[in-house]
Amino acid sequence: MPQDLREGQWNLIYDGDEVRPGADMLFGTLSTGIYLLNEPAIDFADATLGDAPLPLEDGIRFGQDTTSTMTLSFELAVDTVAAAQTPAGRHTANLDAVDTLLTTWDAAAVRRRMGAVAVLRTRQGGRYRRVYGRPRHIALANSRFARQGSTSLVGEFVAADTHWYDDAEESTSPGAAPAPIRGLKAPLTSSLSQRVPAPVQQPGAMNVAGTVPTWPVITIHGPGRNPTLTFFGPERTQQGDLRERMTVGLDLTLGEGEWVTIDPRPWARTVLRNGTGGIAGALTRSSPRMSDMLLPPGLQHVRYAVADETGTSYATVAWRAAHRYP
């Protein structure tokens, strides 16, 4: 479980590997030993413009513009003034604390893995937010008071995108009705019976908060064949029904105990079977590109369908509300 945060605190988290340690570091307030000298600066990168000049006339034709990311800059002070009674003790404690901060900010366990990201959490105005990315540049800004137990540094955290996400994850798990059986199978025996097709199950409700679209992480659990999730809303038809937005399907068969996770988030973009094997090619042609698998803010629904005679297959859709500012 992530650590609880006080107002104005930040929490850097990432997993370790077999050689390099992970991190769960608090900073931002005096009680953490690493406090902020100023409010963090948030720098949004310039957009990449798709403009094109109009031939033989004034003006331009606006094209498709894209944005890259944002960078958070922190002015940090490592404070060990109260760590010892003597100047030598405070100096030693300060050197150790700066060493720990630099090692944590280096994030070797993250940067040595393709696509891996760290999580940077914060509490601002009573709200818990997080961004995904990597700690990058860090440098000593002032070490003249290190012998008295204080060293200042400047560090940067580069986000994977320009969005802030709710710390709490939401999820829904729409069930699937058993597939109907059509016709009879040999050998025939007495007391023949045929299952009646189950009624179409109502889609599961999803109340997506936030101010910008966010990414759903879809997990489908077997057994079953050709699972499909259809998303509706938040727009409505003339009849008042939620409009069908997108369908995400897989052309495969899952055994009992098997699962597939579809993760379209920019730092992932994977379709994994049982958490390891990549099977992005199993996405059906009717499925949108992973970059378009977005949930807009608002009330919407999702319906799950699968050919499963046991009636035990199920799917979960998890998401975090997204914002442009913490």
Rank of each mutant, 00 (worst) to 15 (best):
R265C: 01
A97P: 06
A84D: 13
S191M: 11
S68E: 14
A52V: 14
L188T: 10
T67G: 13
N274P: 03
A198I: 08
R130D: 11
L295P: 00
Y165Q: 08
E235K: 08
L12Y: 02
A116K: 11
G8R: 06
F145S: 08
Q300T: 06
T92R: 12
W10A: 03
P296W: 05
L294C: 07
P297Y: 08
L36I: 05
G28T: 01
T172M: 12
Y14E: 02
G22V: 07
G278I: 06
M25R: 11
R243H: 08
I218K: 02
I262R: 00
P55R: 14
H301N: 09
Q148K: 15
W215V: 02
G222C: 04
V271F: 01
T32A: 10
M70N: 03
Q238S: 15
T104L: 11
R243A: 09
V200I: 15
G22C: 13
A268E: 08
G59H: 08
A179W: 05
L242T: 01
T151L: 03
A41M: 03
D46C: 06
V154G: 06
R243T: 04
D251M: 03
D51S: 10
H221C: 06
V212M: 02
P227D: 06
Q3K: 15
A88P: 05
P234H: 10
G149H: 01
L56D: 09
G311L: 08
A118Y: 05
R182N: 03
M114W: 11
E18Q: 11
E39W: 04
E170F: 12
F62I: 10
S190C: 07
F27Q: 01
Y14I: 09
T80E: 10
G33R: 00
G222H: 02
W259A: 00
P87L: 12
V78C: 01
D43T: 14
D292N: 11
L299H: 15
D166F: 01
T29V: 07
V302T: 04
I60G: 06
A282Y: 03
E57Q: 13
N274F: 02
T312D: 15
W10K: 09
S313T: 02
T32G: 06
T66C: 06
R236L: 09
N274R: 00
V217R: 12
M206N: 05
T276G: 00
S286V: 02
Q300P: 03
H137F: 13
I34K: 00
R243C: 04
G16C: 15
P213Y: 06
D65R: 15
L56E: 07
L254A: 03
P297I: 02
E170H: 12
S313K: 00
G115H: 14
R113G: 11
M293K: 02
P178S: 04
R20V: 04
S190Q: 10
G126R: 13
L188D: 11
L272G: 00
F231P: 00
A108R: 13
W215M: 04
P326D: 13
G33K: 01
S73A: 14
T67V: 15
L188H: 14
G298P: 05
M25H: 07
G183L: 07
L192T: 14
R111Q: 12
M246H: 08
L95E: 13
A209N: 13
N94E: 09
E156Q: 14
F74H: 00
Q85T: 15
Y14S: 04
L252W: 04
V248H: 01
L294P: 02
Y314C: 05
D17C: 09
A268W: 05
A84I: 09
P216V: 04
L5G: 05
R289M: 11
I181G: 07
A23M: 06
D15S: 14
R245S: 10
